[in-house]
């Protein structure tokens, strides 16, 4: 019991965990349909893409950067991969499709990274600019219409079910694990944390910050591309307008998970919890049948409550 108490008093995860428990219990009491395996299948299915994108965003934000072009990246990757499948004889090869997707994501990340680190443009606005460019290219390439004709094998790689667990959720958890290791046990993760905390200090110690920043943007780009491929595979269609506001969703769960926007501090696990919380809220509002117009209001309120709850403990811990 004391351990539990200690957890809620000191852990950085206590905010989202507390919120998840409160909303979970409330929903379970309100509706018999909430606390069921099939519903958790639903939720895990719905939040998978957000988790995948948000992991990259977490590390980037910790390093003091941000990437608002991930939503457009999702769309452009889907469109490019599907264009390949439609154009290639016999539906194309799955591996080449994946390679195209990853390359596309890496390239878009590289563009962002170069603009931000080498050319020293502020990331928020620079990636807002590239977001417009990427989205526009996706619209031009697809002619503005959804593209059917996604390779069946490709669909099986990125979505479906393993037993009752959605494959895309397993992919997402795998990425969380990789993100966790990268952030806590690899050099690049430590440099990201140090850079977000005090960039000048890192620079003085002789580390080439620019190079690492570019790599972080490439990682974020690749993860967004994986998100794009999962989305394309889940829907069996690539839409040039897909992924709108995914960047805001991603940033929201990163912050709900306790990561500081100013950089320096944050965790991948917190982000996962944030995504779970947002997923439960959206699912719960539908389950209890809140009318469409009221949903936005409640989602906003609950985000606010969750960050307030998370923040109180953080203050106490630091005081």
């Amino acid at each position: 019991m004391r351990k539990v108490q200690q957890f809620f008093q000191t852990s950085v995860y206590s905010g989202p965990v507390l919120a998840i428990i409160i909303f979970g219990v409330a929903l379970a009491l309100y509706s018999p349909h909430f606390l069921q395996v099939s519903n958790f299948v639903n939720i895990s299915n719905q939040i998978a893409i957000n988790i995948i994108i948000a992991v990259g965003m977490t590390i980037l934000i910790i390093s003091g950067g941000i990437d608002l072009s991930v939503g457009a990246n999702v769309a452009l990757t889907g469109v490019l991969v599907t264009l390949y499948f439609r154009g290639a004889p016999g539906g194309g090869s799955v591996l080449i499709g994946i390679a195209i997707g990853i390359t596309c994501g890496a390239l878009l990340g590289l563009i962002n990274g170069l603009i931000v680190s080498v050319l020293k443009a502020p990331p928020f606005i620079a990636t807002l600019g590239t977001s417009g460019v990427f989205r526009g290219i996706a619209l031009v390439l697809s002619g503005g219409r959804p593209l059917m004709g996604v390779n069946e094998g490709f669909i099986r790689v990125f979505s479906g079910f393993v037993g009752r667990v959605p494959l895309q959720f397993i992919i997402a958890l795998g990425i969380v694990l990789v993100g966790f290791i990268t952030l806590n046990h690899l050099k690049i993760g430590r440099i990201a944390q140090a850079t977000g905390g005090n960039e000048r200090c890192v620079r003085t110690s002789g580390i080439r910050v620019e190079r690492y920043k570019v790599i972080l943007y490439v990682i974020t780009g690749v993860l967004a591309a994986i998100g794009g491929m999962v989305l394309t595979s889940m829907m069996a269609v690539a839409e040039p307008i897909a992924g709108q506001f995914y960047e805001l969703d991603a940033v929201a769960v990163v912050v709900m998970g306790g990561t500081l926007m100013q950089g320096g501090k944050g965790t991948v696990i917190g982000t996962l919890l944030g995504a779970v919380l947002l997923g439960i809220v959206r699912n719960g509002l539908n389950i209890i049948g809140v009318p469409a117009n009221y949903q936005q209001l409640f989602v906003g309120l609950i985000i606010l409550i969750a960050v307030v709850a998370g923040n109180r403990n953080k203050d106490r811990a630091t005081q």
Partner: peptide, 26 residues
Amino acid sequence: NVGVYNGEWDRKKAMDVAADILQSHP
């Protein structure tokens, strides 16, 4: 009529909403 839900013209959102309603209204 069990209700009107918001899909915002978006395929993924419509999918999420439909999954939730199938859950709450088997």
